[in-house]
Design a protein around this nucleic acid. Structure first.
Length: 284
DNA sequence: TGAATTGTTATCGT
DNA sequence: AACGATAACAATTC
């Protein structure tokens, strides 16, 4: 479940221990984790020095001195751990990197959805991603352009990594609450003021979450405390922190979605479309 | 035991 | 034809 704030936190903790280290070995216990293949990753990383560690969306980007890159996506249950902190008999180890200071970085992933890419052309993987929501380039005007003419509902649109990179289920719900917008609102229906509020909400929520080192709600991601600041996610039936109304849960595009029915009023469609679309009648 | 979880892809409909 | 909605899927935990 790691989203942008969790990945950013991981990158920041990785940096001091990994920068300048030389990789001395690579092993894997699950082929499918490794792209294009375990052998090609090993050939690309062994005897290379780690030059830079960054983040793009939910990808961890480890740049090697010769221009090769490791792109690590944790997906649902992936985590990076240090060999020396592992209890004996650690299960679900998918890949390990040996380092020249005798330490070892371990990719642990119970559900096996995570991926480790080695490539000299990171754009081939990262190129499809939308803008970084915390970058200077991500302005309200840019967001307006991304929403313009789109009939999609806000929730699935914000989860789409090719529109904006880094939002997952938690921070999408939190951003929509902060913006006072219902997840089923059609993107193109937002007025200028609402786009500005959404833009501000996305950045505020992500920045706060990074400050809190991410959200720790289960065994998957430890060490964060943003869970204490969540306003809607995982708070079904609990009172809205703003108005006291019980938080409601619904499914939008097969995703659990949480909202305050008062702070995020249901969108009103123009009369002509309410008449003719089955979806609107069902929701009414 | 089955529901929940994320991102990608294929497929179908408008 | 492009866009959007939907389902299936990967595998495990509780």
């Amino acid at each position: 479940m790691p989203e942008l704030p969790e990945v950013e936190t991981i990158v920041r903790t990785l940096r001091p221990r990994l920068l300048g280290r030389r990789i001395t070995g690579f092993t894997t216990r699950w082929r499918r984790t490794c792209l294009p293949s375990p052998a090609l990753i090993r050939a690309g990383v062994v005897d290379r020095t780690i030059d830079r560690i960054s983040r793009r969306g939910k990808f961890i980007v480890i740049t090697l001195a010769d221009g090769g890159h490791l792109l690590i996506h944790l997906r649902m249950s992936g985590r990076l751990e240090w060999d020396d902190t592992l209890a004996t008999g650690r299960t679900h180890i998918r890949a390990t990197w040996d380092l020249d200071d005798e330490s070892r970085l371990v990719f642990v992933d119970a559900r096996k959805f995570g991926r480790v890419h080695y490539t000299c052309d990171p754009a081939a993987v990262l190129g499809v991603l939308g803008p970084e929501p915390l970058s200077r380039a991500f302005t309200a005007t840019r967001l307006a352009a991304l929403l313009a003419g789109r009939r999609r509902q806000l929730k699935p649109l914000l989860l789409d990594q090719t529109i904006i990179a880094g939002l997952g289920n938690i921070y999408t719900d939190e951003a929509l609450f902060a913006a006072g917008l219902h997840p089923l609102t059609r993107a193109a229906d937002l007025d200028r003021r609402q786009v500005q509020r959404l833009h501000q909400a996305i950045r505020d929520v992500l920045r706060l979450a990074i400050r809190k080192h991410g959200t720790s709600i289960d065994w998957i991601y430890p060490g964060g405390w943003m869970q204490r600041h969540l306003k809607v996610y995982g708070r079904t039936a609990q009172p809205c922190r703003h108005c006291g109304t019980p938080i409601r849960a619904l499914r939008v595009g097969q995703r659990g979605t949480h909202l305050c029915p008062v702070c995020q009023p249901e969108p009103v469609r123009p009369r002509t479309q309410v008449r003719h679309t089955r979806r609107s009648q069902r929701l009414a």
